[in-house]
Design a protein around this nucleic acid. Structure first.
Lengths: 239, 239
DNA sequence: CCAAAAGTGTTGCGATTACACCCATGG
DNA sequence: CCATGGGTGTAATCGCAACACTTTTGG
């Protein structure tokens, strides 16, 4: 490494993705089946190595586009980095994990580009404790848990929930995001009042839809506010 | 990089530190004056390269001990990673930034080990917008801002504030942490009720102290709870 | 005695909950 | 006409900010 001290050890930098969505009203994570050693045949989080001249953020955006075909309409943020020297048997690989949220039932796995080295792509259901039924490769179970926890926490005080919805959505659809991610059932009436009352959170479109059945519901877009005040509070766990 | 694809670009991994403390009741950050190019003579966040067989977390712990002499008694958590290819003119250096909080008026800079390459070490005052009077090297201003923001946010719902206090502290001392970090003046009476009422947050020691003047105050230690429910709410900004 | 900081009691208000009730559609 | 989801009204309650007041020290 020219210009740097001799003792500096080179590492490979990877950008991995925790891509969450809702399938049939429950939380799912995007996974690829590994076609190569190590962990061949195991499910893993999508990701890849950061290229020359690329930041981890840009690499994550690129991987996300490659894997899902979705360009924008996705929320993407850095989650954390994982640098345990033993986390990858091939050598010193440091992963910058990112959290992505994509709209419900968008980008079904069949429609995904099977490009690159991904042999098989699927939405795996996420359990209440933030894990999958089948074990994940590397330390990806840990990364997934951190991602799910982050998503759950941020729903409370941020406008993140709308990232799971289409561009235009109803209050009911938004509420079902909270129900699914938190595993609760919020009161539809109070939820309605709360989110429509929070300034800057929802932009009324003016039109209505009956796609959810029942009485026509007003359509909204995400408003300019990124934080939600007062927050939507998660119901306390029963003691 | 043996065992890895040819296209993988090697990067140097650094662990940088945002070390915050209170000096005379106001927020300060630990900085070192750079003795080498690039940015020679500028203040920078303390940090260094991750060594062989070391995780970024361990490297941060090592740097923190080297720089402050403080072993435990410090809160340390990962903040975020910075991987812009142009962030270091020497080459591809990715920084995993960490946030550390040390007790008020502990480890004054004079007492710090001037070991390693640090020519000069100081606590720099942090302004309300999370920056320093003098510019910092690299992208460290950005990292500092992110660290201060994280600290401010986590005070609300976590037991983080106690990290700024000695092992045993009074409710008043804890309140002054909030006052300093948030730049507000909380009501001493309501604050007292709130923190002593939160289960698991404070462990009463049983003894008292008059070191803050006035009536003797009960001493507490950090309780087992890491999250604070209900949270301490930051007073709303005046519109 | 006075100043200063620690604690306790009380009161009023605003947010939240729990639910009754009405609305507008599709089948 | 009924099931379904959308939306509004309202009363009981909870949490909390505001502040009066008492306690216990040092000087």
């Amino acid at each position: 490494m020219p210009g740097l001290p001799d003792a500096v050890v080179p590492v490979a930098l990877a950008a991995d993705l925790v891509v969450l969505t809702l399938v049939d009203g429950s939380l799912h994570v995007l996974a690829v089946r590994r076609a190569e050693a190590p962990f061949i045949g195991r499910w893993a989080l999508p990701g890849g190595f950061v290229r020359e001249g690329e930041s981890a953020q840009r690499a994550a955006e690129r991987e996300l586009a490659e894997e899902t075909g979705l360009g924008s309409r996705v929320h993407l943020e850095q989650l954390a980095s994982y640098s345990d020297p033993a986390r990858d048997p091939r050598g010193r690989v440091v992963s910058v994990a990112h959290l992505a949220l994509v709209p419900a039932d968008d980008a079904p796995p069949e429609a995904m580009r099977a490009g690159g080295d991904a042999a098989e792509v699927a939405w795996l259901p996420v359990t209440d404790d933030g894990s999958t039924a089948e074990p994940l490769a590397f330390d990806h179970a840990r990364i997934l848990r951190d991602g799910v926890e982050r998503a759950r926490a941020k729903l409370e005080y941020s406008a993140l929930a709308a990232a799971f919805c289409e561009e235009e959505f109803t209050v009911g659809e938004l509420r079902r995001v909270y129900d699914a991610v938190w595993g609760v059932r919020l009161d539809a009436r109070n939820f309605h009042r709360k989110v429509t009352g929070a300034r800057g959170f929802l932009d009324p479109v003016g039109t209505t839809t009956t796609r959810d059945g029942g009485r026509p519901a007003a359509l909204f877009r995400r408003g300019p506010a990124s934080t939600l005040n007062p927050p939507i509070t998660r119901p306390p766990e029963p003691d």
